[in-house]
C-alpha cells in the first residue's frame, strides 16, 4: 500500500513540478507570441470532435467541417439574450472580414435543447445570423458527451404553465483552428473587432 502510494505521489509531484517549471520557463502565464484577445487554450482541451445532426436532419461529425477555422457555441433557439447577442456579434465579426477570408470561418451553433429545437426550427434560426453558420443538435446523451468533452454543462429549469423553460448553458465561444486543434476561448464580452482580430490571425496562420 505504502509503495503504491509513493509511486502515485511521485508521479503527481513530478507532474506538478514539471508544470510549475514549464510555467516559469515559458515566461509565465498567458504570454504568447500572438496577442490574442481570447484566452489561449492550446493543449488544454481535446481537438474538435462530435457526433450530432445538422439542421437538415443528417448526422455529421467534426471532420465534415474541417479545413476551416471553427467557432463552437452552445445555446438554444428560445434563448432570450445570451445566444442572439453572441451570434449577432459573431456574424458582425465575420461579415466584416475580407470577402476572401469569409469562407474560411464557420460558426457551429449547437442547440442543447433538442426537445424544442427541431432541425427545421434550428435551420430557420441560424439562417437569420448569416451564411457561415451551421445549426447542430442531437440526442441529449450526444450533447452531454460533447459538453463534457469541452468541460461545460447545461441544465433545464422547471417549465412554466405555458411549457416554456430556461436553459442554462456555457456563454463561451470555443475557437478551433483549421486542423481542429482547440486554440481560443472567447468570452461573450469581447467586441466584434477583437473577435475579428483573433480570427484573422488564425486564418492567416497557415494559409
Amino acid at each position: 500500500m505504502r509503495t503504491r502510494f509513493w509511486r502515485q505521489r511521485n508521479k503527481i509531484i513530478s507532474a506538478t513540478l514539471t508544470l510549475i517549471a514549464s510555467l516559469l520557463l515559458t515566461g509565465c502565464l498567458g504570454n504568447d507570441a500572438e496577442d490574442w484577445n481570447g484566452k489561449n487554450i492550446s493543449g488544454l482541451m481535446p481537438e474538435l470532435e462530435f457526433d450530432l445532426i445538422n439542421s437538415r436532419g443528417e448526422s455529421v461529425s467534426g471532420d465534415d467541417y474541417s479545413g476551416r477555422v471553427r467557432m463552437l457555441f452552445f445555446g438554444f433557439t428560445s434563448c432570450p439574450d445570451v445566444c442572439p447577442t453572441a451570434l449577432q456579434k459573431l456574424n458582425q465579426a465575420t461579415s466584416g472580414l475580407d470577402p476572401k477570408l469569409q469562407d474560411e470561418v464557420l460558426t457551429l451553433f449547437v442547440s442543447v435543447d433538442p426537445k424544442r429545437d427541431t432541425p427545421e426550427r434550428l435551420a430557420k434560426y441560424v439562417d437569420f445570423f448569416g451564411d457561415n453558420i451551421v445549426g447542430l443538435t442531437g440526442k441529449e446523451p450526444q450533447l452531454r458527451e460533447l459538453a463534457k468533452r469541452y468541460r461545460t454543462t447545461f441544465g433545464y429549469d422547471e417549465p412554466d404553465p405555458d411549457g416554456n423553460y430556461a436553459v442554462s448553458h456555457s456563454s463561451a465561444i470555443y475557437v478551433f483552428d483549421r486542423e481542429g486543434n482547440p486554440r481560443l476561448l472567447m468570452r461573450p464580452n469581447l467586441s466584434r473587432e477583437e473577435i475579428r482580430h483573433d480570427l484573422v490571425a488564425l486564418i492567416e496562420e497557415d494559409s
Binding site: F5, Q8, R9, I12, I13, A15, T16, L19, L23, L29, G30, K39, I41, G43, L44, M45, P46, R151, L185
Partner: peptide, 25 residues
C-alpha cells in the same frame, strides 16, 4: 489564471485533485 486552466483541462484537473489528496495525507 491557473484555476481557470485547471477547470478547463481534464488532465490538469486530475493532477490538481490527486496532488491535493496526496499532499493532505
Amino acid at each position: 489564471s491557473i484555476h481557470f486552466d485547471a477547470m478547463l483541462s481534464r488532465d490538469l484537473y486530475w493532477v490538481m485533485n490527486w496532488s491535493m489528496l496526496l499532499d493532505g495525507l
